[in-house]
């Protein structure tokens, strides 16, 4: 029997071999599951359900992320468009601020100095003959504008679109401020053109010089024109649009 095993023994051996194999595999798998996942296999199903749920939840969140990212992109696009518009607006605003005179500016131009005539008044003389009138100043300023001046100030008072020169006694009113002689007009523009316009025959200075007013025109490479310090108040004028 020892050297001639029966069929029964062979069959039993095969079955026990299979049984041993099965048990060992099962134990090994279970052990590895415990070692890797640290959970018994009975809970696998439950955990798989939780996992699936979480995976679905994650998918939803990912879709949400994608949607939000798209939204951000749209916003960014809009923002860049806005930035372009903003830059354009800022540029235009700068030009308008320069034009309105609310910003101090510097550049080449001329300085004009007007003084009262030193000629002594004789009895019976008209004192107007030795005084610089606001009209003289106005003529100078208008001539400067006409000659292409970009910024003009009189005694530190910026001449803006609403500025009017008027006469109060022996002083000149400009931007609701009294100006006293000597009157210094500074203008930024092409110095040669400005000077030529002022000195032209029949120009504003020619008449003053004829009456021996000390008048000086100096071309400068760099002159500063201060900003308008007053406010703008439009009570009647309304923008059309």
């Amino acid at each position: 029997m020892r050297f001639r095993p029966s069929r029964l023994q062979l069959a039993l051996t095969a079955i026990l071999l299979v049984a041993g194999l099965l048990v060992t595999w099962q134990v090994r798998v279970e052990t590895s599951i415990r070692a890797k996942l640290r959970i018994p296999s009975q809970r696998l199903e439950e955990l798989a359900f939780v996992l699936q749920e979480q995976a679905r939840y994650r998918e939803r969140l990912e879709a949400e992320i994608a949607a939000l990212r798209e939204q951000v992109e749209r916003y960014e696009e809009a923002a860049t468009r806005d930035q372009g518009a903003q830059r354009e607006l800022r540029r235009r605003l700068e030009v308008l601020r320069l034009a309105a005179g609310v910003e101090a500016v510097r550049g080449p131009g001329v300085v004009v100095e007007l003084r009262y005539s030193p000629r002594p008044l004789e009895p019976g003389d008209d004192p107007n003959l030795v005084l610089v009138h606001y009209t003289d100043l106005q003529a100078v300023v208008a001539t400067l504008w006409a000659a292409g001046a970009e910024a003009v100030a009189v005694n530190g008072e910026r001449v803006v679109s609403t500025t009017g020169l008027s006469c109060v006694g022996t002083t000149i009113l400009c931007n609701a401020r009294r100006l006293a002689p000597p009157y210094v007009v500074v203008a930024i523009g092409d110095p040669d053109a400005l000077q030529a316009a002022l000195e032209a025959e029949g120009g504003p200075l020619a008449a003053l010089r004829a009456f021996q007013f000390p008048v000086r025109v100096v071309k400068v490479q760099e002159v500063r024109v201060p900003a308008y310090r007053g406010g703008f108040e439009f009570r009647y004028a309304r923008a059309e649009k």
Binding site: Q9, L17, V18, L44
Partner: peptide, 29 residues
């Protein structure tokens, strides 16, 4: 001889690597 078969089966199970899919572990148990 059957005991030898059992031992051989166990040794074989230890030597031969096997990956039972997680979903089938319950059935094989």
């Amino acid at each position: 001889l059957p005991l030898v078969g059992l031992v051989v089966g166990v040794v074989l199970g230890l030597l031969v690597g096997v990956e039972i899919p997680l979903g089938f572990v319950k059935y094989t148990a």
